[in-house]
Simulated scan of single mutants.
Amino acid sequence: MAGLATNALAQNYPVTPQQRSTAQQTAQTGVPLSELAPNAPDEYTVKPRDTLWAISRLYLRSPWRWPELWGMNMAEIQNPHRIYPGQVLYLDKSGGRARLALRRGGSGMPEGGTIKLSPRTRYESLADMALPTLNPSLIEPFLAEPIVVDAETLTMAPRIVAGNESRVVLARGDRIYARGEAKSPLVETAGPIQTYRVFRNATPLKDPGTGETLGYEAQYVGKAQLQRGESTAKEEVDGKEVVYPVPATLDIVATREEIRAGDRLLPEPPRQLLSYVPRAPAQAIADGRIVSVYGNAVQFAAQNQVVAINKGTIDGIENGHVLAILKNGDTIIDKTSGTKETMKLPNERIGLLMVFRPFERVSYALVLEINDAPRVGDLLANP
């Protein structure tokens, strides 16, 4: 059962026909030695904290060209996502081409053509122990926390109207009351308890080049579970029957910071098994820019930090797309000549980022590597 479980997980990771074709071609021809990283090791033992990106970077000058890394040992690793700690990778440079294998020499067949087998115990955890593409701790919080929506979606979202015992600041374990709009009230449905994410402060994300608002980034503050849906109550006042709206009842089950009246609720989407396989976009990316650096109006980004970019699914952006970060060259005055001519310095490549959560017109991306600090407004291009 364990093997079936992990194989099922592996099959959920997409490998496109183009990537498979590239890998198959590399499997036959190998990789030119010029494409290897300068210090590619002849032998490497996969470690528990390794990632597919790190191993690709270890062997190739361009880590997003992972299909070629897969193709170097495609005969032995039928699925590139099934690389495990403890496996040893061997680099063969014979014939002016590079190939990887899990056994020295690649074939795994000793001289004489005989393999000696010994009994041994083999076990496999139900947890998927294969190497992730990236360190999951860097991006998992962003799969649940920030969200990009249009103005109408957030305006129409149910809102918290009060806390129990008239509390202003609410935390985990507190009870809250919320109302939806007339066309979409909060009601109970059959099945598991409904969970909602709590958001506030929709910050506009503007394109640094055009000034256009691409969407609104809602700040995640916690989670709540619906206990009772909205209803109505009747009461007689001065001999007349008055109908009052009764808000829905929810319990706060998680908080990042205090929750307040006026915060908005959006349904928690089902958890998905996603693949973040680094690869270059098939199409040319034009006018790409960093829109914001996530976290308290920070202007500069560090390695392993999350940024928002001005490209999304409408532009063909997908999970795993790698883009080069270009420092926008400054406009300066040439003071070395009598004319004092205005000139623009060239754009310089300063790093790479990878998209891990695309929305329609905006995407979140992880800064993978840098040699200078990226900032809001820096350009993006195909790697």
Rank of each mutant, 00 (worst) to 15 (best):
L226K: 14
A190D: 14
K335N: 02
R264H: 14
R179F: 12
P269I: 09
G211I: 08
P17H: 05
G105I: 00
I290T: 09
W64M: 03
D50R: 02
E152S: 11
Y220A: 09
L352Y: 05
S137N: 01
S292Q: 00
R271H: 07
L52F: 06
P208G: 02
N310A: 03
I325R: 05
P132A: 08
V149G: 08
L134S: 01
S275A: 10
I309H: 07
M129H: 06
R256Y: 15
A381F: 00
K327Y: 01
I147F: 03
V367T: 07
G329A: 10
V148I: 11
A5W: 01
N296C: 11
L366F: 10
A373K: 15
L36K: 04
P141R: 07
T133W: 03
G320D: 05
V187L: 15
A202E: 13
P80Q: 08
A286I: 11
Q219C: 15
N371L: 09
W66L: 08
K223P: 10
L131S: 11
T336C: 00
P374A: 05
R264C: 07
P110I: 09
P38V: 12
P146W: 10
L134M: 08
A324W: 00
A98G: 05
L323C: 02
E348T: 09
A248Q: 12
M129L: 13
G71H: 12
V46R: 08
R20Y: 06
P14N: 07
A10R: 04
A284W: 05
A365D: 01
L33E: 06
N164P: 01
P267F: 12
P119M: 13
G113E: 04
P48T: 11
P32H: 03
N73K: 04
Q227T: 08
L134E: 10
S275H: 02
Q28F: 06
V362G: 06
T210D: 13
A27N: 13
P383F: 04
L89P: 00
M343L: 13
D378W: 07
S94T: 10
R357Q: 15
